[in-house]
Computed example of a mutant assay.
Amino acid sequence: MHNIETKWLEDFIALAQSQSFSRAAQLRHVTQPAFSRRIKVLEQAVGVQLVDRDAQPVRLTESGLQFLPVARKVLSQLQGGIKQLSQAGAYLPRINFCAAHALSFTLMPELVQWIRRQEPGFMARTEAANVDVGLSALRKGECDFLLAFHDPQSWVKLDANLFPSCQLGWTRLMPVCKATRHGKPIYQLGVDQDVPYLAYTAEAMLGQAVRERLRSQVGRLSLKKVYETAMAQGLKEMVLAGEGVAWLPELTIKHELESGQIVLCGTEQWVAPLSICLYRAASIEKPMVEKVWQLICQRYQ
């Protein structure tokens, strides 16, 4: 089954009601080309044509008429479920975490589980985001804690009085690639020419750490960028497919390293240490946030 975004369903319902791509796009606050693309993607996801574009005004096909009540029911049930959850959670104080993508599915679940065993009287919410987005949310008071990698050479320096931090551990940012059946790297940094490079986007914190590592070392590497994304998980999938070399946090590829699917493809000079830190805004005064902060500091310091 293809993933279907709720905004596509809302687009489809708006189009059914307005019978006009331009009017529906206005109602959905997007450009008409973008709106048309989203309707097309929805049709591809469900596998049938939902809209008769040749008709004036635009009308739904037979399949579209059958799908319309389904779309309305799905959105209604989803909205109702969210409302029930919100009401159920209203009796517990909520703590909002923001976490780097790579940490949101590795360390974050373990951390929340441990906190709840010590202090079950709260509801936790985690949002995965790039570190710059998380930092902005922390400064604006939109999240209570930010879990992020910290590279002393490249990351933004925060005022410790305004944004105290607690170091939760360490990992390494490693240049890795797919292994041959004999356990050898299919690419070798410093030896091969034009090694296909799977990179982070410019705004990604891990990308900044990699660039600093490359600049700080004397040796020159022959890299040819062939792909980029902000997410380590996306680079990991490309590495597993044998598409090139990427610098990945060791904690995100532990299983693949142990199984021999992925191997280090360069010397230790290209490995960058990364600390894992939890940040909070000192200006936020919430009793539960303070209690959780004290629990974490006692455990890790």
Rank of each mutant, 00 (worst) to 15 (best):
Ala102Pro: 09
Met123Ala: 12
Arg220Ser: 07
Ala25Arg: 04
Cys177Glu: 02
Ala202Met: 09
Arg53Phe: 07
Arg299Asp: 07
Ile296Lys: 04
Ser259Lys: 13
Gln217Asp: 05
Leu147Pro: 02
Val70Glu: 12
Arg211Ser: 10
Gln261His: 10
Leu15Gln: 04
Glu119Val: 08
Thr229Val: 09
Gln113Val: 10
Leu78Gly: 14
Ala199Gly: 06
Lys184Tyr: 05
Leu162Gln: 15
Lys40Pro: 04
Ala281Trp: 00
Asp11Trp: 00
Ala100Lys: 02
Ala124Asp: 13
Thr267Gln: 13
Cys98Lys: 06
Arg125His: 11
Glu285Ser: 15
Lys224Asn: 02
Val289His: 08
Gln233Asn: 08
Lys184Ala: 09
Leu42His: 04
Gly190Leu: 09
Val74Ile: 15
Ala204Met: 05
Gln217Leu: 05
Ser259Val: 11
Leu158Tyr: 05
Trp270Thr: 01
Gly260Asn: 09
Gln217Tyr: 02
Gln56Trp: 11
Cys98Ser: 15
His255Leu: 06
Ser86Val: 10
Arg125Cys: 10
Leu135His: 09
Gln79Cys: 10
Ala25His: 03
Arg280Phe: 01
Arg59Asp: 01
Gln269His: 09
Trp247Arg: 03
Ala272Tyr: 01
Asn161Ile: 02
Tyr187Phe: 15
Gln118Leu: 10
Gln49Cys: 13
Val191Phe: 11
Pro33Asn: 08
Ser18Trp: 01
Val210Ala: 08
Glu62Gln: 14
Ala281Arg: 09
Gln87Gly: 11
Leu251Thr: 00
Met205Gly: 03
Val58Ile: 15
Ser104His: 07
Cys143Glu: 02
Ala137Met: 13
Leu103Phe: 13
Gln56Ala: 11
Arg211Lys: 14
Lys83Glu: 15
Ala282Asn: 11
Pro273His: 01
Gly169Ile: 04
Val271Glu: 13
Met205Asn: 03
Arg117Ser: 14
Gln294Tyr: 08
Met108Thr: 08
Ala88Met: 14
Cys98Gln: 12
Phe105Lys: 13
Leu257Pro: 09
Gln269Ile: 09
Ala71Met: 12
Leu50Lys: 11
